[in-house]
Design a protein around this nucleic acid. Structure first.
Lengths: 247, 247
DNA sequence: ACGACGACCTTACCTATGTTAATGTCGGAC
DNA sequence: GTCCGACATTAACATAGGTAAGGTCGTCGT
């Protein structure tokens, strides 16, 4: 069994056996499980750990005073929530489980230990956090410039490619647990319009979405309607400048 | 003369004299100036430096294939662009000057040196980068959930408070160099609607905006229409847990 | 077996915002 | 002083997407 985190980080750099063992060890200590819809951490609380999602989907979200909710990010298997958070006094948003999830809590001490002894991991984790920031920026573009159809298509492309990097797809399909309400809260549109938009994508044979399973028969076609450019995911390892000796 | 960066970082923690001298020194070496509208770095280029804005306003932006442009972030005096960027192979977006700007380029070596010798600065810079990420998240909420009026009001509140932290306001006024086109590209709305929205804010006496100067007679009132909660800026130093001995 | 519920889907209608395009204002270049 | 370009403003009209309401289906608890 491969840890999704390891699988993902290897998209960026090669890890030594010792690096991998370190990650496995870190992921094994302090594992917590949450039911679907349960909060992992809530706005206002003091963050004490870095959370690593091992199984399941979670999301970052924020609620306005009047109840409107925006999903700000999705955490898929292998994703980390906020390197360095412990610097902040309190959470300005919440993190909630979408499906049942298994989360590893990484303490500040464990993190520091890893930073010192494993420069490769450290660099890979910074890469992962830069990519997370790039994704957040792309969401800004998505919400600001793309219309409903493009927006939905873009989200589906992104999630599919990220799931692929974590080893959670098979062929052109993946599990897809989001409800239409959640899609609406993500894309800033009503559930009615989410429904219309999904119908439209289905009618154009761009997606098959049924029984919590998403199939994308032609990813390039979907990327084209989304004006999707995968460069922001920084997944291409070739040509990267590395500090260190390859094994 | 105070460096806006120092002024801002002191919202988070106290810096020693040596820390401040270090920052002044870093900011002084390799200063570049750009004219309004000029690109500081362009999508596709390899990032070699961390840019620090000393004077003027800049923005991060991204352009879709069909020409639509989204402004993703503003950089105000004292703002840093992306700690750690040199890890990435190429920029996935551009950074452009809005007004004429003065930028300090910080090399990887200078950054590493600072990280080693000045833990206080290091921690403060991580704080600043976490705040930048929080701002990006709030923009997601803004674009996803707020309507045009709320959205505009929210942006104005944020910019004003950030300028205040950098020491660039006087009383309830600040310079405000953005054109209506740029506001539209930021908030995902047409210039016509930007204009309507500004008129509405003026009519309610929530803002005075004229000759590139913004005045907010009653910040609380503007915050109220924006559903603005400043917690995401993490500006309250009280009660912060610090590693180290205060001077 | 029954009711309650949550997800999904649909229709009809309405409104916030976009589009187009004309007009106004101001400051700088010559 | 006038010409020009950048920006702001306004009006008339078009539309993407929101709101409200209701229906179907499958599942779960009792």
């Amino acid at each position: 069994m491969r840890l999704p985190l390891i699988r993902k980080l290897e998209k960026f750099t090669r890890l030594s056996q010792a690096d991998k063992e370190m990650l496995v060890r870190i992921a094994a200590q302090r594992v917590r499980r949450f039911a679907a819809r349960e909060d992992i951490i809530h706005e206002g609380e003091k963050p004490e750990f870095i959370n690593l999602i091992n199984e399941g989907w979670a999301c970052r979200y924020k609620t306005l005073e009047d109840g409107r909710r925006q999903i700000i990010a999705f955490f898929l298997p292998g994703d980390l929530c906020d390197l360095n958070v412990f610097i902040l006094k309190e959470m300005d948003h919440s993190i909630g489980a979408i499906t049942p999830v298994a989360v590893s809590e990484i303490s500040r001490a464990a993190f520091d230990e890893m930073m010192i002894g494993h420069p490769r991991i450290t660099q890979a984790l910074w890469w992962e956090s830069l990519v997370a920031a790039a994704i957040q920026r792309e969401w800004t573009v998505n919400l600001g410039q793309r219309d409903a159809l493009e927006r939905m298509a873009h989200l589906l492309c992104e999630l599919f490619i990220r799931l692929e990097a974590a080893g959670c797809t098979s062929d052109s399909s993946c599990e897809f647990p989001l409800t239409q309400t959640e899609l609406g809260e993500t894309l800033g549109m009503s559930t009615v319009h989410v429904n219309r938009t999904l119908q439209e994508l289905r009618a154009s044979n761009l997606i098959v979405l049924k029984d919590r399973t998403l199939t994308i028969p032609n990813l390039q076609a979907l990327q084209d309607v989304a004006l999707f450019n995968p460069n922001y995911l920084h997944l291409d390892r070739e040509g990267r400048h590395l500090d260190a000796n390859e094994e």
